[in-house]
């Protein structure tokens, strides 16, 4: 296994070491923009493997992958946030998260362009999301984190990867009248 999975024990030791007021965030690049999610949401980070396309889904659903025998959907985060469909490169990664829907846990992969680092952001450096001025839907943003002089958008995973919304949207695409080209 050559995936870069994060050792849970390490994460835990970091957690205990960290002062209570500060959270840890995994930052990554999507469409040249630095974004972050809470480290506790991250299950593991894996290399790009071959992704099987699922027909009749919107383009932000990249497809499904085989994760140790389980079939896991992968969402193209760039397309999901309203940018272009991301091009695969050497640095592309899949960040695996777990979201819950109807009391069921569902593993989901997020395709990102590059994983950067894990940052400690103290609570007083975290500010509420601005109501305008970003090119990402407001409800996707949990907060803004200040790191030195820059701001990093912290994503609200439960919204970005809302299973019920994803399912509904794929229904809309599927319901489009498919031209019959026989």
């Amino acid at each position: 296994m050559n995936d870069l999975s994060i050792n849970k024990d390490q994460v835990r030791s970091h957690e205990t070491a960290a002062v209570e007021q500060q959270g840890q965030y995994l930052t990554f690049l999507v469409a040249d923009e630095a974004l972050g999610i809470a480290i506790n949401d991250v299950k593991e980070i894996i290399e790009i493997t071959s992704i099987t396309r699922v027909p009749m889904t919107p383009d932000y659903i990249r497809g499904v992958i085989n994760l140790r025998g389980n079939v896991v959907p992968v969402v193209d985060l760039s397309a999901r946030l309203g940018h272009q469909v991301s091009e695969l490169s050497k640095r592309s990664c899949i960040v695996l998260v777990e979201v819950s829907c109807n009391d069921e846990k569902q593993s989901l992969g997020m395709l990102v362009d590059q994983v950067k680092e894990i940052l400690d952001i103290p609570e007083d450096h975290i500010q509420p999301a601005p109501t305008f001025g970003t090119n990402i839907r407001v409800e996707f943003i949990q907060a803004m984190g200040r790191v030195e002089d820059e701001f990093i958008i912290l994503l609200e995973i439960s919204r970005v990867l809302s299973v019920s919304e994803l399912a509904e949207l794929s229904l809309m695409t599927a319901a489009e009248p498919a031209p019959v080209l026989a």
Binding site: V54, T57, V64, V71, C101, E168, S170, L171
Partner: peptide, 19 residues
């Protein structure tokens, strides 16, 4: 047979996936 999960439950024509 592996389940495809809730995201794809509305897609007609597919009943699951396999490795």
């Amino acid at each position: 047979i592996k389940p495809l999960g809730q995201i794809f439950e509305n897609i007609e024509g597919l009943s699951g996936a396999t490795v």
